[in-house]
Design a protein around this nucleic acid. Structure first.
Lengths: 337, 337
DNA sequence: CTGAAAGCGCTTACAG
DNA sequence: CTGAAAGCGCTTACAG
């Protein structure tokens, strides 16, 4: 590979002049500029970006910490992050933590060692062994998280969204409203569960732990939780289930079908996220739309602003609007029951 | 940030000794080693990886070129790529090309400028303006592509897989078998269409262009194509449709429902990929399983082997086994028709 | 085992 | 506008 020295020799100028021709061409005399450009072309010169990056000690790179890359909701967010980063000239390094504190620490170290400039953490966990990031002095932004992180985030108002779901169900006449949650230590689970309880109270309903099952945000866990509801000895069965994401809702619908329960005739199901699939399932899923792509886009834009000193560091969350989407999976209580 | 010089001063040794203490500790006397380690700890020293990377002129980074990051099939592949890369000590840079040759060129340049060591291209396009990569001298591997790329790839035997789908349909008594394809210029579309035609021939059936619709691999396009079949003036309607991916198949099922067509009673549907969702849809989708995660994992392992000279460069594809998965969306032809 | 020196490829004051 | 020099932080022969 040709270096700047080769170009300088070829063009008969100094290396400094080559640099200037590259970055501040108007500060170079036309004749030399032409010579340099000819030399660059002749030699097929490309600046060594490893060197540039080292010199400027900025990698122009953002690490995205994702708990689960195969999750389609996260995939949407990442698509938004990548587009915003591209526009701002930043590269995206993917970090799959698998909820391991050790893995997370490695990525934090990448920022400490200048390999990356900042971190976007998707759906950060609550206080647990995976909550390393807050303790480090690393530029960070969370996306699809919850209030109260020590760094700014881009999210929706989860509490309000969940309450709207419960109100919808209560308005349809449901009194035994169940829930399928995410992992108990997940911050979104905690917040949405709070919203669930508040929604119940506002509807004049009681919170019954027997009507709640813990899932892991994946399809199968929704299937299993639904089956568990059907098999439980508890005589009180939910006539409606709020699921903390669409995948579990879709899994639950399928699980219910195994027990010959029709959705929504026998039982109503609500999801959360509004995946593309949710509009095309049978029945189409009633859910809460999170603007995943926009959330990703905004989080990257926010982090870049922070890195470039264009945003105040006041640690305020950007709260994007959600949208309640009523489709076919919810209906009035079945009078036969 | 403390540098190696600070550590050397603090420990009272030379910088070379610090480097050795870091990388070849057994070549350093125990007493100095201890001093260096103490200094590192005291100063909280972390090697500047930008500098290390520059010195060794290897970024230990792989660029993943993805046509569409939000696609769940690709998300699975990426998950595999990331895991394999992590194990081998490589980082993953995400490149969203949006099928733009200009964008693709930028990522190729990253390799040329040493910012990355190689490229994994997902589902590469055929000869078109987006087929820049083959012409460059850049270490590359394709994943989920087709035979004939100028660099090695990890894929399944698409032709055989599609033929198995058609045979399944023919065995069920279908004679009017339609197809919903991907974009016409997509290499997977081209290859699977060839398999479709071969399958028809082997089943003693004729290929009818009127029974083929072009989609774009997304849900809505499957929906639209199905609607188009129903609305077409052509009296010959398919009694079974082979869809080139699961998303379009799921969209098609939904579209058919709009016309009161039941799957599989009135019409059979086959997908391709076997997304998680496909097992949980109603009806559950008959499809071809591509080992997406493994394909991603293998492609990254292969590229790293290539980069490190551990694989011969003979440009042979790794062909992973697919699996035909019969579920509920296919059935014998409806006798009423 | 150890250190002084040179160098990776680029850019940034500095002096002219 | 231009070039010589110094330096970013690290590592690699080289000599001892």
């Amino acid at each position: 590979m040709a270096t700047i020295r080769d170009v300088a020799n070829e063009a008969g100028v100094s290396r400094a002049t080559v640099t200037r021709a590259l970055h501040e061409p108007d500060k170079v005399s036309p004749s030399r500029l032409a010579k340099v450009q000819a030399a660059i072309k002749k030699l097929g010169y490309r600046p060594n970006m490893l060197s540039q990056t080292f010199r400027s000690s900025s990698a122009k790179t953002i690490v995205v910490l994702a708990p689960n890359l195969a999750n389609p909701f996260f995939a949407q967010i990442i698509a938004g992050i990548v587009d915003a980063s591209d526009e701002r000239g930043y590269k995206i390094l993917v970090g799959s933590t698998n909820n391991s504190a050790k893995r997370e620490a490695e990525f934090i170290r990448m920022v400490e060692t200048r390999l990356a400039d900042g971190i976007i953490q998707m759906a950060p966990y609550t206080e647990g062994e995976t909550a390393l990031l807050p303790r480090q002095h690393v530029p960070a932004v969370s996306v699809a998280g919850v209030p109260g992180t020590p760094y700014p985030g881009v999210r929706i108002d989860n509490i309000a969204a969940v309450k709207e779901c419960i109100r919808h169900l209560a308005d349809l006449g449901h009194t035994n409203i169940g829930a399928i949650t995410g992992p108990a230590d997940n911050s979104n689970t905690v917040v949405r569960l709070a919203g669930f309880k508040e929604g119940l109270v506002e509807a004049g309903l009681r919170y019954l732990p027997a009507l709640v099952r813990e899932g892991d945000f994946r399809l199968v866990s929704g299937f299993g939780a639904a089956a568990d509801f059907m098999l439980a000895s508890n005589p009180v069965k939910p006539t409606a289930i709020f699921c903390m994401n669409d995948e579990m809702a879709l899994g639950a619908i399928r699980g219910l079908r195994t027990f010959n329960m029709r959705v929504p005739a026998d039982i109503s199901i609500i999801g959360f996220d509004n995946l593309d699939f949710s509009a095309f399932s049978s029945p189409a899923l009633t859910t809460v739309e999170q603007p995943a792509y926009d959330m990703g886009y905004s989080s990257a834009a926010l982090l870049v602003d922070l890195l470039e000193g264009k945003a105040n560091n006041r640690n305020e969350d950007i709260v994007l609007p959600y949208r309640f989407v009523e489709r076919e999976s919810t209906a009035a209580t079945n009078q036969d029951q």
